[in-house]
Simulated assay, not measured.
Amino acid sequence: MNRRKPPPLPLIDQPPAERADAARNRQRLVEAALRIVATHGVAGLALDEVAREAGVGVGTAYRRFGDVGALAYALLEEHEVRFQEAFLAGPPPLGPGAPPDERIRAFVIALLDLQEEQWDLRLLAVKKAALGYASGPYPTYHLHLTRLIEDLGRGLDAPYVASVLLALLTPNVLDHQRRVLALDPERIRHGIETVLAGLL
């Protein structure tokens, strides 16, 4: 029996179709937020301040983003779309064409690198997003890993194992490991590699 081709993975939530003025306001808010981050760091991000910097009403900022977590995801959007395009359609082993175990490892390590590159914004996005793991790219990551784990053909509970692997990479966990446990990035990376070796 032919295996049914799975539906394509959704990319990170894209902005809905907007009127021209709404799209301009969104762009102004994003640019203002980037200026604030460049000057004051992520700690300076607040929707009220971003609205003032952008020259739009505070209500407009809240209607567009809802909370500062959603704004943080908007600032991550360009990098996130590139990452998702890489694991959906880029060259192997991150993209299609490599065995599933190699793709799983490549995905986990690439996601760890991405978290480290955008540390403060990703931490803010996860901490402040109203829907937590249901926000941003997590559902796409989980579905992608679940399919790769199923392709291993080892009878693993793929959705559960995918959630465990992603738990190792959540900004909150990595932040705790760094600040509270005082684990350096190399030690964290070695630990993740050890877990992957045991699984794969």
Rank of each mutant, 00 (worst) to 15 (best):
D151A: 06
L47G: 06
D67F: 13
L152G: 00
L148T: 07
G155S: 00
A20I: 08
L123I: 08
R35F: 02
H40W: 09
R35C: 07
K5H: 15
E80V: 10
E77Y: 12
A134E: 10
A22V: 12
E85N: 15
D48M: 10
H79A: 10
G59N: 10
V68P: 07
L29I: 06
R187W: 02
L75S: 12
L145K: 09
D175R: 13
E102D: 09
L131T: 14
L76N: 07
L174Y: 04
L148V: 07
V56Y: 07
T140N: 07
V164S: 13
A38T: 01
K127T: 12
P93S: 04
I109K: 04
I104A: 06
V180S: 11
A158Q: 13
E31I: 11
P7S: 08
A110K: 05
L183M: 10
V173E: 10
A51I: 03
L111E: 01
G90T: 08
E77D: 12
E117H: 03
I192H: 00
L152S: 00
R64L: 12
R26A: 02
L34F: 11
G191A: 06
R28N: 05
T39D: 12
Q115R: 14
R24S: 13
H176A: 13
V173T: 14
G136V: 00
N2K: 13
E186L: 12
L145T: 09
A167R: 06
Q14F: 11
K127I: 03
R52F: 01
H190K: 14
T146F: 03
A86T: 12
A98F: 01
Y73T: 01
G69L: 07
D151V: 00
R35K: 10
P100T: 00
A98N: 01
D48Y: 10
E186Y: 08
P159V: 02
P171V: 14
S163C: 11
H79V: 07
V108N: 08
W119G: 06
V126K: 15
G191L: 02
L71H: 04
L71G: 11
T194K: 09
D48F: 14
Q14S: 15
L181W: 12
L199S: 12
V126C: 11
Q27I: 04
A98T: 01
Q84Y: 06
E186M: 06
L114C: 10
L199G: 11
F87V: 03
T39P: 05
R105C: 05
K127D: 08
V180G: 02
V108I: 03
Q84M: 12
G59Y: 03
R178C: 02
P139E: 08
A17I: 15
L181M: 13
K127M: 11
V108E: 00
E102L: 05
V56C: 09
G132L: 03
L121P: 14
Y138V: 11
V81D: 09
A32F: 00
D48W: 12
G90R: 09
L88T: 14
P10S: 07
G44S: 01
S163V: 14
V173L: 15
L152I: 03
V42L: 05
G136N: 01
A51K: 03
D157M: 01
A106C: 09
A61I: 01
I192L: 00
A182Y: 10
H142R: 14
G97D: 08
R24W: 10
V30A: 01
